[in-house]
């Protein structure tokens, strides 16, 4: 990413804050959002053979030199499915488009520990 497309962090933060969304969960929702850290504290890092490598919350998981999909996180206790709650953070990403800039994308990432596609 070239320097021209990087806005100062303070500008990014202000933009992300200004357009921070209001997310309405379904009134019957049982799988609430969480922070990434909350989830990492409740999972174990498992390799392709099923060996538990470490507790990801305490390990430097990016430094393991893992190839994509070689490793996975597994929930230690299924009660973590219910998530943290609506005090969870949202992760924002700012990207400038075009040169010269024609538009700016603000992407908001939401994390939920558990997902189910309803069949009822």
């Amino acid at each position: 990413m070239s320097s021209r497309s990087v806005l100062p962090k303070s500008t990014q933060d202000a933009m992300l804050e200004k357009f921070a969304p209001v997310v309405y969960l379904n009134s019957a929702e049982t799988s609430l959002p969480s922070s990434a850290e909350w989830y990492l504290q409740r999972t174990k890092l498992v390799d392709a053979s099923g060996n538990v490598i470490s507790n990801p919350a305490s390990a430097n998981i990016s430094a393991l030199g893992l190839a994509q999909s070689d490793y996975r996180l597994e929930m230690i206790d299924q009660t973590s499915r219910s998530g943290q709650g609506v005090d969870a953070p949202v992760y924002g990403f700012v990207r400038s488009l075009g040169d010269p800039v024609t538009a700016i994308d603000l992407t908001y990432w939401f994390f939920y520990p558990f997902k189910r596609e309803c069949v009822r």
């Binding site: 921070a20 309405y24 379904n26 019957a28 992760y91």
Partner: peptide, 15 residues
């Protein structure tokens, strides 16, 4: 329109 998750003030910039 169930529980509101108001994310203002809870944004972590991961750019």
């Amino acid at each position: 329109k169930g529980t509101a998750w108001n994310t203002a003030g809870a944004i972590v910039n991961i750019t």
